[in-house]
Simulated assay, not measured.
Amino acid sequence: MAADTVLLVFTNAPNTDSARLIARSLVDARLAACVNILPECQSIYRWQGAVEEAAEVPVLIKTTSAHYAAVEAAIRLAHPYELPEIVAVPVERGLPGYLAWVAAETRHTPPAPDA
């Protein structure tokens, strides 16, 4: 996979505040061009041998494959779950200008804090 391949990374947060923390940290660090925080949904899953139900907030992260490791690390650092869902899928097609924008927005390094 090319380093500039656009990825759509999915995670779920337990609430909107956690989702915003994850989103802001990724966009501020230029690890993601855009993060969508979706309305709360209900998740049903098996965890440690029991079927669980929880309200969660889906988070969609647009980044590139070059930044995946850093995105994963940032999500794990900010995420309150013991084992957060982090799934990335390559974007096979999309509006060329939008895909170029994602690549450009994640290509820059952030300015120094005092700049």
Rank of each mutant, 00 (worst) to 15 (best):
A2H: 13
A2T: 06
A2W: 04
A3Y: 03
V6M: 13
V6I: 11
V6E: 11
L7M: 14
L8N: 09
V9I: 14
V9G: 02
F10L: 15
F10Y: 15
F10P: 01
T11I: 04
T11Y: 03
N12A: 12
A13L: 09
P14I: 05
P14K: 10
P14G: 05
T16L: 15
D17K: 10
D17V: 08
D17L: 09
D17A: 15
S18N: 13
S18A: 14
I22Y: 02
A23K: 09
L26I: 11
V27E: 03
D28P: 00
R30I: 00
A33I: 01
A33V: 02
A33L: 04
A33R: 09
C34L: 07
C34R: 15
C34N: 07
V35G: 00
V35T: 05
V35Q: 03
N36V: 01
L38K: 02
L38S: 07
P39N: 11
P39G: 10
P39Y: 00
E40L: 08
E40C: 04
C41E: 13
Q42C: 08
S43W: 00
S43F: 01
I44Q: 15
I44K: 13
Y45E: 06
R46I: 00
R46M: 11
W47R: 08
Q48I: 01
G49L: 03
A50W: 00
A50D: 08
A50P: 00
E52I: 02
E52C: 04
E52D: 11
E53Y: 00
A55L: 10
E56A: 02
E56G: 00
V57P: 04
V57T: 02
P58S: 04
P58N: 07
V59A: 00
V59W: 02
V59D: 01
L60P: 01
I61M: 01
K62T: 03
K62M: 10
T63M: 05
S65V: 00
A66P: 01
H67Q: 15
H67S: 07
H67G: 01
A69P: 01
V71D: 04
A73E: 13
A73T: 10
A74S: 13
A74E: 14
A74G: 01
I75T: 09
L77H: 12
L77P: 00
L77R: 15
A78R: 09
H79D: 11
Y81C: 13
E82I: 02
L83R: 14
L83T: 11
E85D: 08
E85K: 12
E85T: 05
E85Q: 13
E85R: 08
V87M: 12
V87F: 11
A88Y: 06
V91H: 03
V91T: 08
E92V: 03
L95M: 13
L99I: 06
A100P: 01
A100W: 01
A100H: 05
A100G: 05
A100R: 14
W101E: 07
V102G: 03
V102Y: 07
V102W: 07
A103R: 14
A104I: 03
A104C: 08
E105K: 13
T106Y: 10
T106A: 11
R107H: 10
T109K: 14
T109C: 12
T109L: 14
P110Q: 13
P113N: 11
D114F: 05
A115Q: 15
A115D: 09
A115N: 13
